[in-house]
Write a protein that binds this DNA or RNA. Structure first.
Length: 362
RNA sequence: UGGGAUGUAGCCAAGGGGUAAGGCAACGGGUUUUGAUUCCGUCAUCCGAAGGUUCAAAUCCUUCCAUCCCAG
């Protein structure tokens, strides 16, 4: 491009964050086009919605996104992604739970649908753009010492969402733009209010699905036992796929101390529980890795997140066991609770996202 | 049937004359783009039942009921 005026495609969800992202890009002088994906293809249910990604009331959000685009004076396009979403996210969600593991649909969706299919469809539709922006609280910046564009934590690490983005490819990172990366949520709302955007006080959406997860797994309820490590039966449940390691609430089992899910045994439909101490683990195997920065280039202690929470644990990573570099063993400085197969472990060096992978079954 | 023991919320469990701890579960809420974690709040007008003693009892007495264990 000869023009210095960049053209940014912005994923508008209908919420405050993406609207403010678009607003900021306009203020920076970008050409901006809004795009929204439609992913729901389930029953046209009740219409009662609480704000999930896969939500039977998504038309409302799409309409909000369109309104927002109109208010900002930018073009807006809607792309149907339901079929792919079903194949890529929902099928994965169901399969993972049935394997006795815990899926993370947001990570999968970001890499394959939101940052994958959506811009691809936009390109197919003839839209030209240099950048793809979203309202995520994260940063994508060129870092000289690594010689490329990398993902970084948002300034406000409490709100940081880079965890959900670690599976992006280098090309996706190269054109990614996160206008909210240096802002706090309150500032974003203030900006929206100042610009008169009606979504300025819209509650955050924080669910992937507003209904009963078991509906998505779509498995027939099946009674099984809740057992201790030594096999003592403490109670029963209606399907192992309703549980995740580390879970405490919802077991329905009374004991001296709180009990946590230690592991799940799909073949016996058993949920193994134990005390907090029994749930601690010092290491785990990571598979299906995505590596953004070679570990040799990191000279500081690596920190890991085992969940999207702001909690970081110092770790050491051993890649020696696997030549392909897709697997490694991660050892924690302190024993960790809630290490759940299927969940992602994401590595950071300072604020830079180094890579990550999926926690294995053992 | 004889001997022993126990009966406090859904579960476990303190309190042994002065007006029902605590834990677990459950429920409600906060945090959270994963129903995890975490945090906050609520949860026995009543202590197996009926009488009695006392200013006052879940706590003492009596009887009854239930359950468990050991005998036979």
């Amino acid at each position: 491009m000869t023009s210095s005026r960049k053209h940014a495609l912005v994923g508008l969800s209908g919420g405050v964050d993406s609207a403010v992202a678009a607003l900021l890009l306009l203020e920076q002088g970008c050409r901006v086009t809004g795009v929204t994906m439609s992913v729901y293809d389930g029953p046209k249910a009740s219409g009662r919605r609480t704000g999930g990604c896969y939500d039977c009331g998504e038309e409302e959000d799409i309409a909000l996104a369109a309104d927002m685009a109109a208010q900002l004076g930018i073009a807006h396009h809607i792309f149907g992604c339901a079929e792919q979403y079903r194949n890529v996210v929902l099928a994965y969600f169901r399969k993972t739970y049935l394997e006795g593991k815990t899926p993370n649909p947001c990570i999968r969706c970001n890499a394959l649908v939101k940052f994958g299919l959506l811009p691809a469809l936009a390109k197919e539709a003839g839209l030209e753009f240099d950048l793809f922006a979203t309202g995520h609280y994260a940063r994508a910046e060129y870092v000289a010492r690594y010689g490329k564009q990398v993902l970084l934590c948002a300034r406000d690490t409490r709100k940081d969402q880079s965890y959900f983005l670690y599976r992006l490819t280098q090309e996706q990172i190269d054109r990614a733009l996160f206008p909210l990366g240096c802002l706090k949520k309150a500032e974003v709302r203030r900006l929206a209010a100042a610009r008169g955007l009606p979504v300025h006080d819209k509650p955050d959406s924080q669910n992937f699905y507003a209904g009963d997860y078991a509906e998505l797994v779509n498995a027939r309820p099946q009674q099984g036992n809740i057992v201790t490590v030594d096999g003592t039966v403490l109670g029963s449940h209606m399907g192992y796929w309703r549980f995740t390691p580390g879970q405490r609430k919802g077991l329905g089992v009374a004991a001296k101390t709180p009990l946590y899910v230690l592991r799940i045994d799909p073949s016996r439909n058993e949920v193994v529980v134990g005390e907090y101490g029994e749930s601690l683990r010092l290491s785990c195997i990571i598979g299906d890795m995505r590596r953004h920065i070679p570990l040799e280039q990191t000279d500081r202690v690596l920190m890991a997140r085992l969940r999207s929470t702001p909690h970081f644990v110092p770790v050491t990573v051993d890649l020696s066991g696997d030549a392909s570099g897709e697997r490694c063993v991660v050892t924690f400085a302190e024993p960790q609770a809630g290490v759940a197969p299927g969940q992602s472990l994401v590595l950071y060096c300072d604020n830079v996202l180094v890579g990550g992978g999926i926690i294995g079954a053992d």
